[in-house]
Amino acid sequence: MLLDYDRLGWLKVVLLAFTTLVAAFLLLPVVFIVLLSFGSSRWLAFPPPGWTLKWYQELFADPSWIEAALTSARIATMTAILAVAIGLLASFALVRGQFGGREILRGLLLTPMVLPVVVFAIAIYAFFLRLGLGGTTVGFVVAHTVLALPFAIIPIATALEGFDKSIEDAAIVCGASPLQAKFRITLPSIRIGIFSAAIFSFLASWDEVVVAIFMASPTLQTLPVKIWGSLRSDLTPVIAAASSLLVALTLALMIVTALLRRKLQT
């Protein structure tokens, strides 16, 4: 009976109450930060004595926040494009290739996801110092693409595994060139995987803190580095305003993902 929702009895009440508590726990920081960003207290008193938009004004009046956000957007976009392109090619080889050691190669390409980021961060930091790539956009994009690649490969490879290759072969039999068949049959069929890969690799770069802390220079800062620096000096409500905008972005991404999924699946 334990797996029948309607026949759990009193246990259902207990479990549902607990689940509600956990859901509240998960929502608490997100809701709290948004409310805080509109509160008028510089010392983050809560509930706030009054409501204001001044932290948002302060945020937009400070060019360093805007610049950091634009830098992050630029690096994350380039990372997503590179990771999806490289990941797409790699996924085709991993899923369809006929060579020994495929599992080992797949494991190797996914390793950046499991290795503690701090280890990779100091390794690539030292390496780029030697190559003169430290603190450059190229350096950021390359390092973030390494970290994002697993998040691109997993959804694309999964989608490709679920795609019946005989449809692509049928197109070739009907006269399409192999490349045409790939572009007009296969890629559209796995577009949900490609789309997820783009979102995940964008977020992998956009939210990345550790490598960015090491790589950042006074002239090139991503948004997480800017937030990190502010957090270490004081807990100003401007961070809450910036954070709330990030929450809004997350919500927008979730809605777009849900809508696109629904549209693409039909």
Partner: peptide, 8 residues
């Protein structure tokens, strides 16, 4: 964002 949650 990870930093947002930690800040909260």
């Amino acid at each position: 964002n990870l930093l947002t949650r930690t800040y909260a």
